[in-house]
Structure formats: structure tokens, C-alpha cells
């Protein structure tokens, strides 16, 4: 790792392996988050209202719902992928980039569930995409991160 100066910003170099690993993990986080949420939405849509059934029946319903366990597992993958990213990438890089899941989720709503998505929401998707594109133009890390593998 070496450090170079660019105007007043000290930028840590981006080795190809780190950049490709970052792209891979952000993709995993975004896809796992979006599909996990979609599965949770589908699963909860099949659940009775909480106040109308006994707690034990509700919990049994949660455990036997075919969408909820995979949905929760995908949410766990999202969390682990995002926390792993923090070990080499900036927080201010990771958080906006993983927000692409909002855009992907809106597209899933339109194309998978057949929801009618209003133009203003598409404008929101466009803004998110532009924002992520802007953030992606910046370095993955702007301060030194220890390189050695702790595991």
C-alpha cells in the first residue's frame, strides 16, 4: 500500500484485488438485501395479523413460513457482507453504495410483483443511481487500513 497526494486529499491506492473484492461484496450486499426484503415481504403477507392469533400459533407460523427463513438468512448475509466491507473500505463509501438496494427493490416491486410504480419513485431510483455512480468514482479507502488478515 502506498499513499499519494491529490490536492488536499490523501488517497490510499486501490489495488485491483481490493477494488474487485469491493465490487463483489457490494453486489452481494445489495442483492441479498433486496431479495431478502422481498422474501420477508412475501412471507409476512401470508401471516395473520399479530393481534388476531395466539402468540404460539404466530411463532409457529413464522417458523414454518417458506419465505421467512430464507429471507432472514439473506438479511444475515447482507449484514455480514457490509461489516466485512468495513475492514478495508470507507464507511462513507460503503453506506451510499449499498443504498442501491432501494433502487433494486423498487424494480423488483415493479417487475416481479407487478406493482405500479409512480414516475416520482422512478425519479428517486434515478437519483440513487446517480448518487452511487458519483460515490463509485471516489477511492474505496482514503485512510490506511491494516493489510494483514486477522483471521
Amino acid at each position: 500500500m502506498f499513499v499519494c497526494s491529490k490536492r488536499d486529499v490523501t488517497i490510499v491506492s486501490r489495488p485491483n484485488s481490493r477494488v474487485s473484492r469491493t465490487i463483489l461484496f457490494i453486489s452481494i450486499a445489495v442483492i441479498a438485501n433486496s431479495f431478502g426484503n422481498l422474501m420477508l415481504a412475501l412471507g409476512m403477507d401470508r401471516m395473520p395479523a399479530f393481534q388476531h392469533v395466539p402468540l404460539a400459533h404466530y411463532l409457529l407460523g413464522l417458523l414454518t413460513n417458506p419465505f421467512l427463513i430464507p429471507g432472514a438468512a439473506m438479511s444475515a448475509v447482507y449484514t455480514l457482507a457490509q461489516i466485512s466491507l468495513f475492514s478495508w473500505a470507507d464507511l462513507s463509501f460503503v453506506v451510499p453504495c449499498t443504498a442501491s438496494s432501494y433502487a433494486l427493490t423498487t424494480m423488483l416491486g415493479e417487475f416481479v410483483l407487478g406493482e405500479r410504480v409512480q414516475w416520482a419513485r422512478w425519479l428517486g431510483v434515478l437519483l440513487i443511481t446517480c448518487g452511487v455512480a458519483l460515490v463509485a468514482e471516489t477511492p474505496v479507502a482514503t485512510r490506511p487500513h491494516p493489510r494483514e488478515n486477522p483471521a
Binding site: 451510499p96 448518487g131 458519483l134 463509485a136 471516489t138
Partner: peptide
């Protein structure tokens, strides 16, 4: 962290986009 102006602009765009969606 050093936050370049492009990252600030990106964060603001993402925030506005999330609010709209």
C-alpha cells in the same frame, strides 16, 4: 476519512432519492 466532493454530492443524491422512493 477524507470525503471528496463527489462523495458528498453522491450522498446527497442518494438521500434525496431514498426520500422520493
Amino acid at each position: 476519512e477524507r470525503v471528496p466532493w463527489k462523495r458528498w454530492a453522491g450522498v446527497l443524491c442518494v438521500t434525496a432519492g431514498v426520500i422520493l422512493t
